[in-house]
Design a protein around this nucleic acid. Structure first.
Length: 913
RNA sequence: GGGCUCGUAGAUCAGGGGUAGAUCGUCACGUUUGCAACGUGAAGGCCACGGGUUCAAAUCCCGUCGAGUCCA
C-alpha cells in the first residue's frame, strides 16, 4: 500500500512524526520524537502490566464509556447482533463488528442501520483455541467495540483524519497518555476487500485497529493495486471499519498479570476455589510468575512445541526448573481457559446455538467438550451448567434470547452425552489394546486415527487407557495435522449460479411490478412483454410468484395475440422476474394475459402460511428457543427443520398439531406490512430472520398467528383459509435438528383419506374391525413367533428320531453313516454333527427343491471340505466348508444315488491312506 | 455440506461365507435362618430393514433407516 495513504493532516497538525521501527522495520506515527520502536509485539514487551495506562474500568463501565463517547460524537448506538451469524452463509460465528453489516451493507445494496454508528459486538473466534488460557491474552470470546462510517459518493460522513482524531480523543477520555500512543501502518486485506489501516498501540498492547476499507476485487474504471498477487480496485463505498478490543482496554486499565484476571475476576476466583487452588493473585510470587509468563507469551506465538520454549524462558528468568514451573502454571492456565470457555458457551447457548455434530452446533460441542475435559483435569465437581449460568448472570440475563433453564438443560444433556462417549470410548480402546498386547505389537497409528476420527477419543486418552492395559502406543507430535491432512483430500465442487449469467441482460430492465403481493388471491392479470431471451419472458408486471424463501414458483399460462404458452418456472434476478415458458415464443411488445394455476397457488399459499403457524405452535409447545433451520414448501406437503436439542416426542407432536389447528380455527387476519429494517429489527428482534436475511432497505413483515417474520412469500388472508394442518411425521435429521413434515388444506384431506385407506385395507386383509387392528397384529406376530419356536422344537424331535434310525456301518473301526434323509439343510447339519462329535463320519443328502448335502467328519483323515466339492459337482452344484463340517448342494435330483456312492468311495479311500 | 465407525439376547459385546455365541442381568431349582455368594438348569435372537452375489449370507456388495464421531 502506498505511503501517502498515511500522510494524514491530523498527524501533522498534532505534531506527530513518521518513524521506522528499529526492530521490525514497520512505519509508525508517534508524538514522541525519541521513540524508535513501533510499540507492537514482539518489538515491545507488555509494559502496561503492573503499570495501568488508563483509568480503571470493568467490562460494563468501559463499554459504556466507549459507546457514550461515540454517541456524543454524533454516532447512533446499535444493539449487538447474535454471536451466531445467521444472516450469513459463509461464516457460522460473528467474528467482527463489521460482520454484522456484511454482505449487504458493505457491498452497498442495503443502507446501514445508522450512519455513523457505534456498537459493541460480542465475537467468537476459535482459531487460537490452544492458546486460550496460556498466552495470558487470548480469548475465544471478546467484544469488538467499533465506530463505523459508510461513505458514498453522494454522502461523506468522515474518513481517515476524523477516525484517528476520534480514536485519540477516546483514549484521552479514559485517561490514556497520548504521548505513549503509536499508530502503526499496517495495510489490511480480508474477505475480498482491502485498504490502508493503522494499529493503535499503547504500553506494548494493540488496543484497536482502524481499517479504511476502500478497495474491492470488483474491477472499476479506476486504476487498481496489486496486493499479494491479487488486483484490488477503488470502490464507490468507502467504509471506516474500526475495532477496539473491550477486554484489552479493560486489561490495560487494570494492568493485571493476565487479561483473564482483568475481565472476569469473579469467575477466576470462583473456579480457582472450586479447583482447590488458593487464590494465587494474593501471592506476590505467583503474580510475578504470571506477569512474566504473560510478558514472554506476548512476544511469541505459543502454538504446539513453542509452549516448551515459553516454559524454558520463564523458568530461566525466575530461576526454577521448567518442570516445576509447569506444575505451578498448568492448572492456572486450565482455570483461565475454563473461565473463558464457559463465558463463550454462555454466549453461544444464550444466542440459541444448539450443540450438534454439524455447522455452528459442532463448534459449540467442541468448546463444551474441551471445557468438560478441563473440569475433569482440575477435579472440579461443579456442573458445567452451573458455571455457564453464573457467566450468564455476570453478562446479564436480559442480553440473551434463550431461556436459562433451556441453556442448563442443554449443558446437562451434553455433559451426559460426553460421559457416555467416554465410557464407550474406554471400552473400545481397552479391547483394541488387549488385541495388540496379545499379539505383542504396538498399537498402530492407523488405529489411533480411526479411534479419534470415528469415535471422538482423544489420543492422550487412548494412550492412558492402552498403557494401563499394558499395550504400547506411540503418538507423533503432529497427530492432529495428520488427521487434518487426511480430511483435506476431499475437495468441494464450485456451485454454478444459474442466475448470475442473466445479471447483465437484466440490468437495463425496470423492476417488475409484483402483483402477487397486493392481489395474492387473484389469478389473472394483463401485462406487456419487455424482453424475451433463452426461453425467459420479462413483463412489466406479474402475478407469478418466483421461487424463493423455500416456496416454489407458480406455474400457469400466458396468452398473447399469436400464441399461448405454458409458464413452467419463474425466477427472480435482482428486482426483475423471469418467466420460463414452453410451447411457443413471445415477442417484445406483446400484450399478454397471464393465468396462474389456481389450485397449485392456493396449495402453496396454504402450506406457506401453515409453516408460520406450525413454527408458532412449536414454540408454544417446545419453548421459546425454537428456530427454523430451513424449510421447503410444496403443493402436496411441506417440511420445516427446527433447531431443538432433543427428539420431539409423539405426544409433543400431537400437541403441536392440535395447537396449530386451534390457531387456524381462531381465524386471525394475516397482517403484512413493510417496515424499516432497523426499526423492525429493534421491534421484533432477530427471530425475524427465520428463513435467512432478505436484502433491501425495507423488510416485508408478515404476522401470522403471533409469528412475526421477514418473509417474501405469498400467504392466505387469514389463518382460517389454511383449512387444516396434518403433521405427517417428524424426522431426526441431525443432532440438534428435527424435521417436521406436514400437509395443509385439501392436500391434508387427501392425506387423511389415504391413511384411512391403509387402515381399512389392512383391517380387511385380517377380517377385523379397524379398531381391533393393533391388537390383532400383535396377536398374529406373537403367534408367528410361537409357531416358529414350535417348528424348531419339532424339527429337533425329528432329528432325534432320525438319529435312532440311523444305522452306522463300521469302516476301519470308525462308524460311518451315508444316507439319504429328506430334511432341510439345518437339520441335516445337526444330524451329521452329532455323528461326528463321537468321532464318526456322516454323509447325508436330502431332497427338497434341490439336493442338499452335508458331510461331517470326526476323523482327521477325512477332509469334509475337499470331498463335498466332488460330491456336489455330480449334482451340478458346488459346496465347501471346514475339514470337520462341509455343506453344499446341486439341482440334479436324479444323481443323488450316484453322488452318495462316489462320496462313499472317497471316504473309504481317505481312511485307507 | 463432506468423511469415517457402528447396528447380533434385557445390557455390554465376540463371531466377519458353512449348526448363532460369551459375560452380566432375568427366572426356576439346590445349598443357606435370611441375604450375599455359589452350584445346576431354563427362558430370552425377523443377527436394524430392503435388494443383490452365492450351492450356502449375521458375515460380501448396493440402497434405506438408526446411532456415534471428525472436519469445513
Amino acid at each position: 500500500m502506498l505511503e501517502e495513504e498515511y500522510q494524514l493532516d491530523y498527524f501533522k497538525e498534532q505534531g506527530m512524526v513518521r518513524k521506522i521501527c528499529r526492530s521490525c522495520g514497520s512505519a509508525f506515527w508517534t508524538r514522541d520524537s525519541a521513540r524508535e520502536i513501533c510499540g507492537d509485539a514482539p518489538c515491545e514487551p507488555y509494559n502496561f502490566i503492573g503499570e495501568p495506562v488508563f483509568k480503571t474500568h470493568n467490562l460494563d463501565t468501559m463499554r459504556e464509556a466507549y459507546l457514550s463517547f461515540f454517541e456524543k460524537q454524533g454516532h447512533t448506538r446499535i444493539e449487538r447482533y447474535p454471536v451466531a451469524a445467521r444472516w450469513r452463509d459463509d461464516i457460522y460465528l460473528t467474528i467482527a463488528s463489521i460482520a454484522d453489516f456484511q454482505p449487504f451493507v458493505t457491498s452497498g445494496i442495503v443502507p446501514p442501520p445508522a450512519n455513523p454508528l457505534t456498537i459493541s459486538q460480542p465475537c467468537i473466534r476459535l482459531n487460537d483455541l490452544d492458546s486460550v488460557g496460556r498466552s495470558g491474552r487470548h480469548l475465544t470470546t471478546f467484544e469488538m467495540m467499533a465506530h463505523h462510517a459508510f461513505n458514498t459518493p453522494s454522502e461523506e460522513i468522515y474518513w481517515k483524519d476524523r477516525t484517528v482524531e476520534l480514536c485519540d480523543q477516546f483514549i484521552a477520555s479514559i485517561g490514556g497518555d497520548l504521548n505513549k500512543v503509536t499508530f502503526k501502518e499496517s495495510p489490511w486485506i480480508g474477505g475480498g476487500n482491502a485498504g490502508p489501516s493503522v494499529e493503535v498501540l499503547i504500553g506494548g498492547l494493540e488496543i484497536a485497529t482502524l481499517v479504511f476499507m476502500s478497495l474491492g476485487r470488483k474491477k472499476t474504471d479506476q486504476p487498481g493495486y496489486d496486493l499479494k498477487g491479487e488486483m484490488y480496485y477503488p470502490m464507490k463505498l468507502r467504509i471506516v471499519d474500526t475495532g477496539y478490543g473491550l477486554e484489552r482496554l479493560v486489561w490495560a486499565s487494570k494492568g493485571s498479570p493476565t487479561i483473564y484476571d482483568a475481565v472476569f475476576p469473579e469467575m477466576v476466583s470462583h473456579v480457582m476455589g472450586a479447583a482447590g487452588l488458593s487464590h494465587m493473585l494474593d501471592n506476590k510470587d505467583y503474580t510475578r510468575i504470571l506477569s512474566l509468563n504473560a510478558k514472554f507469551a506476548g512476544l511469541m506465538d505459543i502454538s504446539g512445541t513453542n509452549l516448551f520454549q515459553l516454559r524454558k524462558k520463564v523458568a530461566a528468568a525466575i530461576d526454577i526448573s521448567p518442570e516445576k514451573l509447569d506444575r505451578i502454571i498448568t492448572p492456572m492456565e486450565k482455570v483461565y481457559a475454563t473461565v473463558d470457555h464457559t463465558r463463550c458457551l454462555a454466549y453461544m447457548l444464550g444466542d440459541c446455538i444448539v450443540p450438534s455434530n454439524v455447522r455452528e452446533g459442532y463448534l459449540a460441542r467442541l468448546v463444551i467438550r474441551r471445557t468438560l475435559r478441563m473440569l475433569t483435569d482440575l477435579r472440579i465437581d461443579e456442573p458445567l451448567a452451573d458455571l455457564i449460568e453464573q457467566q450468564t448472570r455476570i453478562i446479564g440475563m436480559k442480553k440473551f434470547e434463550q431461556d436459562i433453564s433451556v441453556v442448563r438443560e442443554i449443558a446437562e444433556r451434553e455433559t451426559e452425552k460426553y460421559a457416555s462417549t467416554l465410557e464407550r470410548g474406554t471400552r473400545i480402546v481397552q479391547k483394541i489394546a488387549k488385541t495388540y498386547k496379545a499379539k505383542s505389537q504396538r498399537v498402530p497409528l492407523s488405529e489411533i486415527i480411526t479411534l479419534y476420527d470415528s469415535h471422538g477419543i482423544q489420543p492422550e486418552m487412548i494412550k492412558d487407557i492402552a498403557t494401563k492395559e499394558g499395550a504400547v502406543v506411540d503418538l507423533p507430535d503432529n497427530f492432529y495435522s495428520m488427521v487434518a491432512d487426511m480430511h483435506s483430500e476431499s475437495k468441494k465442487e464450485a456451485e454454478v449460479d444459474t442466475k448470475a449469467k442473466y445479471d447483465e441482460r437484466v440490468q437495463g430492465l425496470p423492476p417488475t411490478k409484483k402483483l402477487y403481493y397486493e392481489q395474492s388471491s387473484d389469478i389473472e392479470f394483463e401485462a406487456v412483454v419487455l424482453d424475451f431471451f433463452d426461453g425467459y419472458a420479462v413483463t412489466d408486471q406479474t402475478l407469478f410468484y418466483p421461487e424463493g424463501g423455500g416456496q416454489p414458483a407458480d406455474t400457469g399460462t400466458m396468452v398473447s395475440a399469436e400464441s399461448m404458452v405454458r409458464v413452467d418456472d419463474v425466477i427472480k434476478v435482482g428486482e426483475v422476474i423471469l418467466h420460463h415458458i414452453s410451447g411457443g415464443i413471445l415477442q417484445r411488445g406483446d400484450r399478454v394475459k397471464g393465468m396462474v394455476d389456481e389450485e397449485r397457488r392456493w396449495s402453496l399459499m396454504r402450506h406457506h402460511t401453515a409453516t408460520h403457524i406450525i413454527l408458532h405452535a412449536a414454540k408454544e409447545v417446545l419453548g421459546a428457543h425454537i428456530h427454523q433451520a430451513g424449510a421447503q414448501k410444496g403443493a402436496e406437503s411441506s417440511r420445516m427443520d427446527l433447531r431443538h436439542f432433543k427428539h420431539i416426542t409423539p405426544d409433543e407432536l400431537r400437541r403441536i398439531e392440535t395447537a396449530a389447528n386451534r390457531l387456524i380455527m381462531a381465524n386471525q387476519q394475516v397482517e403484512i406490512s413493510t417496515e424499516d429494517r432497523t426499526r423492525a429489527e429493534q421491534k421484533y428482534g432477530f427471530s425475524l430472520y427465520q428463513g435467512g436475511v432478505p436484502p433491501g432497505r425495507d423488510l416485508r413483515i408478515v404476522k401470522v398467528a403471533g409469528d412475526i417474520e421477514a418473509c417474501a412469500g405469498t400467504h392466505c388472508r387469514s389463518t382460517g383459509e389454511v383449512g387444516v394442518i396434518k403433521i405427517i411425521r417428524v424426522e431426526h435429521i441431525q443432532d440438534g435438528i428435527e424435521r417436521i413434515e406436514f400437509t395443509a388444506g385439501i392436500a391434508a384431506i387427501y392425506y387423511m383419506q389415504h391413511l384411512e385407506q391403509i387402515v381399512t385395507s389392512s383391517a380387511e386383509a385380517l377380517s377385523v374391525q379397524p379398531d381391533n387392528l393393533p391388537a390383532t397384529v400383535n396377536r398374529f406376530f406373537s403367534e408367528w413367533k410361537d409357531q416358529k419356536k414350535e417348528i424348531e422344537r419339532m424339527s429337533s424331535k425329528v432329528v432325534e428320531l432320525e438319529m435312532q434310525s440311523l444305522v452306522a456301518e463300521s469302516m476301519d473301526g470308525i462308524s460311518v453313516v451315508i444316507k439319504r434323509v429328506d430334511l432341510p439343510q439345518k437339520e441335516l447339519a445337526q444330524l451329521a454333527s452329532s455323528v461326528s462329535e463321537n468321532g464318526g463320519i456322516a454323509l447325508l443328502a436330502g431332497v427338497g427343491e434341490t439336493v442338499r448335502v452335508v458331510l461331517a467328519s470326526g476323523d482327521s483323515r477325512v477332509n469334509a471340505g475337499e470331498i463335498i466339492g466332488q460330491v456336489c459337482s455330480l449334482l451340478g452344484g458346488k459346496g465347501g466348508g471346514k475339514p470337520t463340517m462341509a455343506q453344499g448342494g446341486g439341482p440334479d435330483v436324479g444323481q443323488i444315488d450316484l453322488a452318495l456312492k462316489v462320496g462313499r468311495e472317497r471316504i473309504i479311500a481317505a481312511l485307507q491312506e
